[in-house]
Design a protein around this nucleic acid. Structure first.
Length: 306
DNA sequence: GCGTCCAGGTCTACC
DNA sequence: GGTAGACCTGGACGC
């Protein structure tokens, strides 16, 4: 099977990035913590559906091999597309120098650079990140996983019942009843359908939102203009896009603030939480996520050598 | 197996 | 600008 090698920067660590948040457990990603393997079913723009596999054991500083199944011989444009998509998903180009320096100056966060944390696993497309973020709103994580599983069954088949993430065209072509029957996303189904339709008819071009020249506030407004995306969802999307000057405060963050930051005392309101993270300036959203992930990065599932 | 209750974030109507 | 209630599902719990 073909293997592609992705060039990575010196500070990039594969496994801490792969397990940086729950996305690795949402199809079409699959994560095997025992073998330290991340896989993903991906539909290429030429219609080919492939399975991409990345083993932590194969990762060497500066080079991440990607196994490609489902295709005998890769064309140069297919190689380029896979490299581009995985680079985006693993935030290969994210410069965390300033962030890690900031973390070193604060005793509470000196562990961050040591474990290689900071990059967050995203999806290759804004569309997929938006859908998954919508599935995290007003529900439990177990339900998010199930909504995502059912949604992915609408994507193109790879093999053995494995599917790529459905395109917005596929979702937009469905009627609401049919979509709700398949995905069972509840009232979110209407928001999902509207998002897909707005993308397909060209009303919104969400991929163009990656332009680094767009200010965070403008992006925040654009995301919140989408039905179903409130403060938390917009903050989560900004974080996945590398904008960390806003928080994404949900119940988990409130609990973490209470137990880890505030000696067991709940915040009076979210403004109190915002005030704690305010000194971290442009990195506050990422610092908030480090607080959420601290137990995982120090837990038994994670090795410092990863 | 069935019914009830609860958690989760956003939207809408209302003040 | 702030607040209350509705939205929908899965899971826990009691019977």
């Amino acid at each position: 099977m073909p293997t592609i090698t992705l060039t990575t920067p010196p500070d990039f660590r594969f496994w801490p990035t792969a397990v940086s948040h729950g996305w690795c457990d949402l199809l079409p990603y699959q994560c095997d913590e025992n073998s330290r393997t991340l896989t993903r079913i991906e539909r290429l723009t030429d219609g080919k559906v492939v399975k991409l596999t990345m083993h932590n054991a194969d990762f060497k500083p500066g080079a991440l091999p990607i196994q490609v199944d489902g295709i005998q011989k890769l064309k140069p444009e297919q190689v380029a597309e896979i490299q581009r998509k995985i680079s985006r998903a693993l935030e290969i180009d994210r410069d965390l120098t300033v962030f890690h320096t900031l973390m070193q100056t604060n005793a509470r966060y000196q562990w961050v650079e040591r474990v290689g944390a900071g990059r967050m696993l995203a999806s290759p497309t804004m569309w997929e990140d938006l859908v998954k973020t919508l599935f995290t709103t007003n529900t439990l994580w177990s339900a998010t996983i199930q909504m995502c599983q059912r949604c992915v069954t609408l994507g193109e088949i790879y093999a053995n019942g494995e599917h790529a993430f459905p395109t917005p065209e596929r979702i937009a072509a469905m009627n609401l009843d049919n979509l709700n029957t398949h995905v069972r996303a509840g009232y979110r189904g209407a928001y999902l359908l509207e998002l897909a339709q707005r993308i397909v008819n060209g009303e919104v071009d969400v991929e163009s939102w990656r332009d680094p020249n767009i200010p965070s506030l403008e992006l925040y407004k654009r995301i919140k203009s989408l039905k179903g995306f409130g403060d938390y969802a917009a903050g989560n999307m900004l974080r996945l896009m590398g904008h960390f000057d806003r928080l994404a405060t949900d119940t988990v963050c409130r609990e973490v603030y209470k137990t880890r930051i505030n000696n067991g005392v709940p915040a009076v309101d979210d403004k109190e939480i915002a005030a704690y993270y305010e000194p971290f300036g442009a990195w506050r959203g990422l610092v908030q996520w480090m607080d959420v992930m601290q137990d995982y990065y120090h837990g038994p599932q994670f090795n410092r050598s990863d």
